[in-house]
Design a binder for these strands. Structure first.
Lengths: 146, 146
DNA sequence: ATCAATTGAGTTGTGCACAATCGAGTTGCA
DNA sequence: TGCAACTCGATTGTGCACAACTCAATTGAT
């Protein structure tokens, strides 16, 4: 086996799977007016109600260069509000608007639909989840070490 | 378990792994002057020597909107050449330049380095590769059906 | 032989991702 | 107390990804 064959590269398999997932989410989220990364932000907000941009970045592993414009679009769409933290004026708190909170109900059926589209059972998905978690951790560590 | 919890979403695990891989490749490829998607194109060219834009799109599952500017940058970097297919003037053939062919040797050690950074054994990686392949196929099918 | 439908690249517009940088606000230490 | 170091968010610039569209070349059906 040739180490440089495209089809043998796990990296391409991950990349392709990620884009295929994105395409399925694009279709499912269109009705909610959200993109996939915007949906990820909403997941965090539906869990916590309010988060600083900093903590959002930690949760999603995104920096402010990505989050700032994304949050601006979510604010323009009327689903979140942004305001400086009175206790620390450097920090910006992001909260759900009532409209944003209402979106949650419409997002509820999504995970099941994606699971069905994946063609995999719960156990297999859980296994994949764990494996990818380990992979991401290893890669991240190796990146910070080097 | 809450279906909408970020940490329970396999989609986020895939997304995060993909970006972590991209980060590692970014570091490794910097010396070659390539980005990760450009490296994927080069993989195909190192295999086949010459490919039409159309076939590249099939191999990488990318459309011309992504490939056209990317190939333009590779051409500007001097590693590929583009010319109309004399047999079918609609088609554009992409070929390696000698400089592009030389890059292959410098890319050779990459897969091993990434494998080490992944912290996973060959069997486990092969397994992940297969699982992701099935996932991508299922998602793609479900997308075209709907 | 003609022309309508199809194919293949390219362009435009939108949005994500990251590096590098800036500036305001905060903290800590001399 | 005063100032240097640090933190946080925003901005700029580059590149990837996809949808929608344009246009030229080709194909096929009549």
């Amino acid at each position: 086996m040739d180490a440089l064959r495209l089809d043998d590269q796990v990296c391409f398999a991950v990349h392709a799977a990620s884009r295929a997932l994105d395409a399925v989410y694009r279709r499912e989220l269109a009705a909610l007016g959200l993109t996939y990364p915007q949906y990820l932000v909403m997941l965090v907000l539906w869990e916590r109600g309010q988060v600083s941009v900093k903590d959002l970045g930690v949760a999603l592993r995104l920096d402010s260069g990505t989050l700032s414009p994304l949050l601006k679009r979510l604010e323009a769409a009327g689903v979140v509000r942004r305001e400086r933290d009175p206790g620390d004026e450097r920090s910006v708190l992001v909260r759900l608007t009532p409209e944003g909170a209402l979106l949650r109900a419409r997002a509820e059926p999504l995970p099941r639909r994606i699971m069905e589209a994946s063609g995999m059972g719960p156990d297999e998905l859980a296994d994949l989840h764990r494996t990818l978690g380990r992979l991401t951790r290893s890669l991240t560590e190796s990146a910070t070490r080097a």
